[in-house]
Write a protein that binds this DNA or RNA. Sequence first.
DNA 1: TTGGTACAATGGTCTGACCAATTTCTGCAC
DNA 2: GTGCAGAAATTGGTCAGACCATTGTACCAA
Lengths: 244, 244
Amino acid sequence: MIDPGLLPIQTTARDDAVLNALADFVMQEELQPGDRLPTERVLSERLKVSRTTVREALTRWEGLGLVERLQGSGTYLKGVVSRDMLHMPLTFASGNDFESLMHTLEIRRALEAEAAALCALRAGPSELAFIKQKLEVMEEAFHSRAGMSSDEDWDFHQSIYRVSGNPLFEQIISAMQEAFHRFWEHPLGVRDFGHASFPYHRKLYERIVAHDAEGARAEALKLIATVEDDLRRGAANLKLLDLK
Amino acid sequence: MIDPGLLPIQTTARDDAVLNALADFVMQEELQPGDRLPTERVLSERLKVSRTTVREALTRWEGLGLVERLQGSGTYLKGVVSRDMLHMPLTFASGNDFESLMHTLEIRRALEAEAAALCALRAGPSELAFIKQKLEVMEEAFHSRAGMSSDEDWDFHQSIYRVSGNPLFEQIISAMQEAFHRFWEHPLGVRDFGHASFPYHRKLYERIVAHDAEGARAEALKLIATVEDDLRRGAANLKLLDLK
DNA sequence: TTGGTACAATGGTCTGACCAATTTCTGCAC
DNA sequence: GTGCAGAAATTGGTCAGACCATTGTACCAA
């Protein structure tokens, strides 16, 4: 079998060249997010560079969140890649304290509200059905498990970001989600976290169906407000414990 | 809403461990940007991992712009590093096309509105004076030059981000602004870009002084809306040119 | 159908070597 | 002593080949 792309590399600055070649390959083969890339060993052979170099290049992409590596399985495309793409990694200090988490939540509230508004404006019938399905899965999980389920909840919100038509929303929010994960390894002791937010999900959906941008924005703000309240309660609990 | 725990266990995360160890080292030694890190070989020996692993870890940091490697010289710290940092890699479809600009503007609108609302809630007398001063400088520049001045305008908005009490607003926005800076100078050939937004600056300030969060949010939304209109007009102009 | 087992494929790590760019040292000319 | 050219050491970049750990798959037995 002869692949048209993936010609040998010649210049110096190998790993950069590898990334360009790989970007070309991805575009040429029209690979979608979720598709599997060629094996490191295959790339190494095709590009006539060592596997080390291939790995360094892929490590770059992995750090930028463009690609995901699964040991024993393969390397999978995680974002859209094209040769002329502007990568802008933001890094800043963000501790695990209450204040930092509150800051990220404020960013999230801002983006969530805007995404909801845009979503209300732009969602067509098929997009609405997509969101509705995510909503119903979430509600089902809520009732069967008697509590908020993070995965299904996340799917619902993610569907809104996607339908907003602006990929930046999803990128920024999902990057911040990692901060949440870190934080929740040391929970604040709040049980049923996010429980209060449940009813607002359907309200938000209804405003989107009605193409009511400002209404959707308002509901999204209320939803995040309940989460902030939970967080504040958790912080209060911690303070109580500290006093003992 | 958030993850309840049960994260996947990780048996192999050596390069991550290397980065944590390195972050600790940097903090312990109080290394500043520009300082040189230990050699790859030294790190390899000290951390009891192979040089390959050290290199993979450093490649991650290099990709995030935290570190710079100079062959024959060494690896140098390029940014501030701490153990718990939030990495937020964003990727744009590069370029000066209308759609990309619109996407960044949508993010900006989201953050601007939220920052304005928080600002209205949190601004004390001295903060209000700070914002007022920036506003007056901007207005002065507007009248003397008969047009919006990007620098003074940017200073005004930046003061709002700062008073919001959440550093993330300023960091995210300024990073995006930087990426498109050259383009914002003369966007799409629209003269008097941002001219229509002028009166809304003072209105926004007045809502902040009144500690009216929702009012401030609304004015910020209107302000960005005028910029979007300008952008749309520019896109229409370009399209006209294309047809010739 | 279920569950287990062997095997192949794939990413992760290691070792040791050599290359290329840079820095530092050395010794000679003046 | 000074200045400078060349040698030597240092350091990141690449390579080759090996082995480990995890995953996916095909096959077999209960």
